[in-house]
Computed example of a mutant assay.
Amino acid sequence: MSDQHRITAPAGSPPAGATDGPARIAELRGAIDGLDQRIIALLAERTRVVQELTAHKTDEATVRSPDRVRQVLDRVHDLASRHGMPPEVAVGTYRSLIDELTRMQLDMLAARRAAASAGEER
């Protein structure tokens, strides 16, 4: 993380020499916008990997993989704790991400099955 985005003062108090009030809010919002760009790029990359992975899955149980979901959520919890992030925020975010990507995978699996069935009918 760059020094530009690092906040070292206690919550609610601006760092020495830093801007405060509306100027600081605008500065921090700009930092958040930059972080969002990086986060979305990483999520897009993660989604592409999941899409490729889905090509190797053949059934709903393999898509849902509850043991793998638990493993990922446990790892995310630990990573968040190590980085000073509230683990419940990270885990909640990942639960939502996993739910949406599972839905995407199930749709992909259904489309692949439909295409295979249509090919068999010819």
Results as ranks from 00 to 15, higher is better:
1 M>V: 08
3 D>C: 02
4 Q>M: 05
5 H>F: 09
8 T>G: 05
10 P>L: 12
10 P>T: 15
10 P>N: 11
11 A>W: 09
12 G>W: 03
13 S>T: 15
13 S>W: 05
14 P>G: 03
14 P>S: 01
15 P>V: 12
16 A>Y: 04
16 A>M: 12
16 A>G: 05
17 G>S: 04
17 G>E: 03
18 A>I: 02
21 G>R: 04
32 I>A: 11
33 D>E: 10
33 D>W: 00
34 G>Q: 03
38 R>N: 06
38 R>D: 04
40 I>E: 03
41 A>H: 07
42 L>N: 04
44 A>T: 14
44 A>S: 11
45 E>F: 12
46 R>W: 10
47 T>R: 12
49 V>Q: 14
52 E>C: 08
52 E>L: 12
55 A>N: 09
57 K>F: 01
59 D>P: 01
62 T>A: 15
63 V>S: 02
64 R>D: 00
64 R>F: 01
64 R>V: 06
64 R>I: 09
65 S>C: 07
65 S>E: 02
69 V>H: 01
71 Q>N: 02
74 D>Y: 02
75 R>K: 09
75 R>N: 10
76 V>D: 00
79 L>S: 09
80 A>S: 05
81 S>G: 13
82 R>W: 08
82 R>N: 09
85 M>E: 10
85 M>I: 14
85 M>N: 06
87 P>F: 06
88 E>F: 15
89 V>T: 13
89 V>N: 08
90 A>R: 06
91 V>Q: 10
96 S>I: 07
96 S>L: 10
97 L>N: 00
98 I>G: 00
103 R>A: 14
103 R>C: 04
105 Q>M: 01
105 Q>D: 01
107 D>R: 15
109 L>Y: 03
109 L>V: 01
110 A>C: 02
113 R>F: 00
117 S>H: 08
119 G>K: 09
121 E>D: 12
